[in-house]
Simulated scan of single mutants.
Amino acid sequence: MDRDLTSLAARLRALPPSCGPVRLVAVDGHAGSGKSTFAGLLADALGGAPVLHTDDLATHEELFAWGDRFREQVLEPLSRGEHARYGIYDWVRREFTEQRELPPAPVVVVEGVGTGRRTLRPHLACLLWMELAPEHSWERGQLRDGPALAAFWNGWIPAERGHFAADPSRPYADLLVRQGQTGYEIHVGPSGAL
């Protein structure tokens, strides 16, 4: 286990709850920056913390307009110490096809582009930003997704630019995450809160 991840997990567990009994931790960054991988490793370092992927809440028509769903299905129940139940969007069928349950665990990790948005920040114990330039992130994402999703990426990139222009996350990040040669490096973010 990466020593910085173990140390980060200990720091996160020591934070005061931010959403009812839950310490909500967001992992934000550009598409393709490694958010899902990092969130999974962080969840393991936290002893199996649940992870919510905002790709499950977004849709083709609402790439970034999932905030109301997140508030109603996730934030409100967790703030009451209840299990959250949220719909899972099927990107092939283009509809919500199943439900997932999320317990009010001591730490819940939320990962996805825009998880550091202004409407979520008041409910976050910590905002982590994956520090990778957008061009490198998008290149990695396109390589990961292959040519079949080229048209999707042609629409995604301007939509992501527009989202972060209107509602940037990085300036409010508590911590910046860089992938180094030997693991992840965690640095104090622009907000300097942690």
Rank of each mutant, 00 (worst) to 15 (best):
P104L: 01
V113W: 05
A84C: 08
E160Y: 08
G20D: 08
A39F: 07
S191C: 03
Q179R: 14
V51W: 07
D145V: 02
A166S: 15
V113N: 06
P147M: 09
L57I: 02
G114I: 05
L75P: 05
A150C: 08
W138Y: 15
L24F: 00
L128E: 12
E72M: 06
S18A: 13
L120D: 11
R13D: 15
L52G: 05
E139W: 11
A159R: 12
D68T: 02
V27Y: 08
S36A: 14
Y172F: 15
R144W: 14
L75T: 08
A43G: 09
S18P: 03
R144Q: 14
L127N: 06
D55C: 07
V22I: 09
Q142I: 09
E139R: 13
V109L: 09
R178I: 01
V113I: 09
G87N: 08
S191V: 02
M1Y: 03
P171L: 02
L120W: 01
V110F: 00
A10E: 15
V108W: 02
Y184G: 05
A65L: 09
P158A: 14
G32P: 10
G81W: 04
S137H: 05
C19Y: 04
A148K: 06
W91K: 02
Q73M: 13
A31Q: 04
A10H: 11
R23Q: 14
V25W: 10
A166N: 12
L176C: 11
V74I: 15
G81C: 01
G116Y: 00
G34E: 06
L124A: 06
V177W: 06
G141V: 00
R93N: 11
W66M: 05
G29L: 11
V110Y: 02
L78N: 04
P21W: 07
L75N: 00
R100P: 11
S36Y: 09
D28P: 09
A84Q: 02
L149H: 13
Q181N: 12
L102W: 02
H136Y: 10
I186G: 02
E82V: 04
R144S: 14
A125Q: 08
R170A: 15
L194D: 01
E101D: 14
T119E: 15
K35A: 11
E76Q: 11
W129G: 10
